[in-house]
């Protein structure tokens, strides 16, 4: 309840943050909103364009609408696939991490290592790793007769990017899950042993329910991150071959900076942002509702 002393002065400390947020987020966002409802003939001369950009964007029969729809589908598939792999894998890894002794520290550092590498470096590592001539993965796969070419073949390109994401981010889910598992009192495991529960039953009836809250956070974080993926595919595949790995953010940059099509780019930014927000909200609501219903 009311654990803090009551005081109005606390608000003074919030003011700097509000100022920073104003300049870093709100003002740039307003310019985007501004662009999204105007058109230009060049020379910085803008005029009101109403919702035309948005109508275009959301109509899949137009050029830009088609690009947007297919990129959106790509994003959704990508987020779904990486979540389906990373979530179970992360939990599995967490369960295998030792609970006591010197091995704990060593294992945790090892798992956290990919998380500490900058996105561009991750991209570069995998770009080289996947090359057919000198890359360990590319050369080895082709050596054993598997057709693999991430710059020519869409399947290979997708596989590479998914693998890269799994490699980069499974550690985070593992660490979060590990923290959740550590918080389960020993008594639960002892009780389960005494009750004669199988390992699967322990996982199903103790570990998974107790991990639920942590997993909601993990899913949210991973969804947002994967839905906004940019750097890695931009470095590894550049969105290709063709449009195969052209995710929303890549497309956005192409339109905004490549074609300097500010109206379309602005409208796309806003819709992209709203979609991310909506999906996160849906996720969060469903998962917390689930939690409450069980509690009732």
């Amino acid at each position: 309840m009311m654990d803090k002393p009551w005081s109005n002065r606390a608000w003074f400390f919030v003011i700097p943050v509000l100022v920073v947020v104003l300049f870093s987020s709100l003002l740039p966002m307003m310019t985007v909103v501004n662009y999204s409802v105007q058109d230009t003939m060049g020379q910085n001369h803008f005029f009101w364009n109403g919702a035309a950009w948005f109508q275009n964007l959301l109509d899949p029969t137009t050029d830009i609408g088609g690009r947007f729809a297919s990129a959106l589908v790509r994003n959704l598939i990508f987020s779904f696939v990486v979540l389906m792999i990373e979530l179970p894998l992360g939990i599995a890894v967490a369960i295998c991490i030792p609970r006591h002794g010197w091995k704990v520290g060593a294992t945790l550092v090892l798992i956290a290592l990919p998380l500490l590498i900058p996105w561009t470096v991750v991209g570069t590592i995998w770009e080289i790793f996947a090359r057919q001539d000198i890359g360990l993965l590319g050369a080895a796969l082709n050596g054993i007769g598997v057709h693999y070419n991430d710059t020519q073949d869409p399947t290979s390109a997708w596989a590479t990017i998914v693998m890269m994401d799994v490699w980069h981010w499974t550690g985070m889910i593992a660490l979060l899950s590990y923290a959740g598992l550590k918080a389960i009192p020993d008594a639960f495991y002892q009780a389960a042993r005494i009750d004669g529960a199988s390992r699967w039953s322990v996982f199903r009836n103790i570990e998974l329910p107790k991990l639920q809250k942590v997993l909601v956070i993990a899913v949210l974080l991973r969804f947002m991150e994967s839905f906004m993926i940019y750097t890695e595919p931009s470095v590894v595949t550049g969105g290709g071959p063709g449009e195969a790995t052209s995710f929303l953010s890549l497309d956005l940059v192409k339109i905004a900076l490549g074609q300097v099509d500010l109206g379309n780019a602005a409208a796309m930014s806003i819709v992209y942002y709203l979609i991310t927000l909506t999906i996160c909200w849906i996720f969060f609501t469903i998962m917390t509702q689930l939690d409450q219903r069980k509690g009732a």
């Binding site: 008594a187 002892q190 005494i194 009836n205 329910p209 069980k294």
Partner: peptide
């Protein structure tokens, strides 16, 4: 002998229940 082979039951300091059941 390990706990599960001893055929005992135990009640702990804090309630241990299976949440989902």
């Amino acid at each position: 002998l390990s706990t599960e082979k001893r055929n005992i039951a135990q009640v702990f300091q804090f309630p241990v229940i299976y949440d989902t059941m």
